[in-house]
């Protein structure tokens, strides 16, 4: 797996990085081999951003397709060239498991914001996934939205490795941070009863504070809808956007869960449209 990934990262760098960059990086990799904890490793990891300053272009379609062939669920659509270079650099270091994990701890401990984003995006590419689960959970505790999304978005890591409790916290926090859940790989696949209760409580808190309920919540509550939800749904309609009302109408229709008093407050349903179609059309939810 690592040789394929390195090849993908390298070919991206070859076609996009400025002249002399790869030679500089290879030279630093060679110097890093003697001691993985040396100052050259830390400075190189930082200096990559300086060397590639201004190269902010996003990944091409071709790279994204190749990435998904390497690792199902991995999509480097938000990655910068700096992320590719940092990934290539870390995967090129030859050191023991213990040294590598110690090095990662130190890189995380002194990371600036963009370095944190790079490191969290890289989790799925790095070896020793089992040892990185705590790190992913730590990243999800951040208050810095781009760091949260670096863990949660476009990576199968949360789906594959988070415990149910951590997964639920990630989804709940997404709503809390008003961050779309669509880019979370398989966001719907680990839906569970406990999460539905957490989300229902969250809806009630939002309504108590006279704040709108994000309509994507209903996509997760869908499987657990119950007559006890009538009250929450009715109250949420007061502040609901037209988009949310349409979505709820579709959802309630599809679930055949449609008391008349609710129906009267919702727009008419176009039966040709499914919930999934609506989500695809109306948000970055997929």
């Amino acid at each position: 797996m690592i040789p394929e990934l390195k090849h993908l990262l390298l070919s991206t760098l070859e076609s996009n990085s400025p002249e002399g960059f790869l030679q500089w990086l290879d030279d630093k990799i060679a110097k890093s081999q003697t001691e993985a904890q040396s100052a050259v490793v830390f400075s190189t990891f930082s200096l990559i951003a300086r060397k590639l300053k201004g190269r902010n272009e996003k990944s091409s379609e071709e790279i994204i397709i190749k990435a998904q062939q390497c690792i199902e669920g991995w999509c480097p659509c938000e990655w910068t060239l700096v992320d590719f270079a940092r990934g290539y650099f870390l995967l090129s270091l030859k050191c023991t498991k213990e040294d590598f994990l110690n090095l990662l701890d130190k890189l995380f401990a002194s990371a600036d914001m963009n370095e944190s984003i790079s490191l969290y995006r890289l989790l799925i590419l790095l070896p020793y996934h089992e040892e990185l689960i705590n790190r992913a959970e730590e990243g999800l505790r951040t208050n810095i939205l781009p760091i949260f999304q670096a863990v949660a978005y476009h990576s199968p890591f949360p789906y594959l490795y988070l415990s149910e409790a951590s997964w639920n916290q990630m989804i709940l926090k997404s709503f809390f941070m008003e961050s779309h859940i669509g880019p979370i790989y398989k966001w719907e696949a680990r839906n569970n009863h406990i999460l539905s209760q957490l989300l229902e409580d969250y809806c009630k808190e939002r309504l108590a504070a006279s704040r709108a309920v994000p309509f994507e919540i209903w996509a997760l509550l869908e499987a657990y809808l119950h007559v006890s939800h009538y009250d929450v749904i009715t109250r949420s309609l007061v502040q609901a956007s037209d988009q949310a009302k349409t979505f709820l109408a579709l959802l309630l229709h599809e679930k055949n869960f449609c008391p008349n008093e609710l129906l009267a407050q919702l727009p008419p349903v176009q039966t040709s449209q499914s919930i999934r179609d609506f989500l695809k059309d109306n948000h970055e939810i997929y």
Binding site: A39, F42, S46, S110, D112
Partner: peptide, 11 residues
């Protein structure tokens, strides 16, 4: 010993 870990960072 710590300063070189930060001196090269962005910003």
């Amino acid at each position: 010993e710590l300063i070189p870990r930060f001196a090269c960072k962005e910003g």
